[in-house]
Design a protein around this nucleic acid. Sequence first.
DNA 1: CGGGAAAAGTGGCATATGCCACTAATTGAA
DNA 2: TTCAATTAGTGGCATATGCCACTTTTCCCG
Lengths: 154, 154
Amino acid sequence: MTEARKPGFSDCNNATLRRAARSLGRFYDDALGPTGLKSTQFGLLFQIHISDEPAMGAIAEALIMDLSALGHTLKPLIRDGYVGTFPDKDDRRVKRVRLTPRGQAKLDEALKLWSIAQRQFEEKLGAEQAAKLRAALDAVADLDLEMPAAAPSN
Amino acid sequence: MTEARKPGFSDCNNATLRRAARSLGRFYDDALGPTGLKSTQFGLLFQIHISDEPAMGAIAEALIMDLSALGHTLKPLIRDGYVGTFPDKDDRRVKRVRLTPRGQAKLDEALKLWSIAQRQFEEKLGAEQAAKLRAALDAVADLDLEMPAAAPSN
DNA sequence: CGGGAAAAGTGGCATATGCCACTAATTGAA
DNA sequence: TTCAATTAGTGGCATATGCCACTTTTCCCG
């Protein structure tokens, strides 16, 4: 049993990517478990940390995620007091985000566990393989994928 | 502007993977848009299609997803009449899944659009790069990732 | 300067995924 | 045979993500 995959199985790049994402996500989630953060939240806190009080749009762009999705994802972090927001001085449409001291502390705590998971993963896959994989993934993410938009705009 | 990523940015394999998944997912979702299926649903229908009336557990294992998550994901597909379930003859705990004629037709319809997206993606990234990437992703997914489980079982 | 277009978020709705606590069936001993 | 352990799913709860329709601000052009 357990012959899970058949030859010619799934050549779908997207399906393969998601499958790996579920697998790896579980691993990092488990590693971060003690902090109470999901790996996605950790990634978000980290992105905010390395940015300078970024606007929501900037975060969404960096992470290639929908702006409204970011807003939703941010809520539990705000509720738990890890991040705070404030309006931009010059453009009242813009909402900037930053870590609270509590959020910074939580990130520091999470970074320790993250680095363990990261190391373990790279031990299994090989640091070079991992680096190549990340590079390939970044290439995919930054690809200019647009549907041909069959219908001429008018 | 748009200097999204800084050097030494995110070395997190998981974050990089998710970012790429969001990006690629959007592309395939757009491509499948006309069918009303999300790329995840397409993948699920396809997995059921290539299996022989698989049990839910078998699908979950193949896709490396949580069994309950699979159950949830299956609901809209059942509601829309694309898949049906029935109890296993020998083990009443087991619930098997199969495509309905309507589901088969929808899958056929989706496959056409999927292949266009797939081709376009591989044109941009390069078929060989894509194949290598899928292989690497499968390797990651099938890695035996386990937390060291610090606490001895008892 | 006035009004329409563009930009940045928000809220609602729907799917994707996970974990946990349970229930129903089976299996494996004693 | 009987009961504890295991297996397969279900349901509830929470986060992750997207799209769409709006609202508020800015921008920019005539």
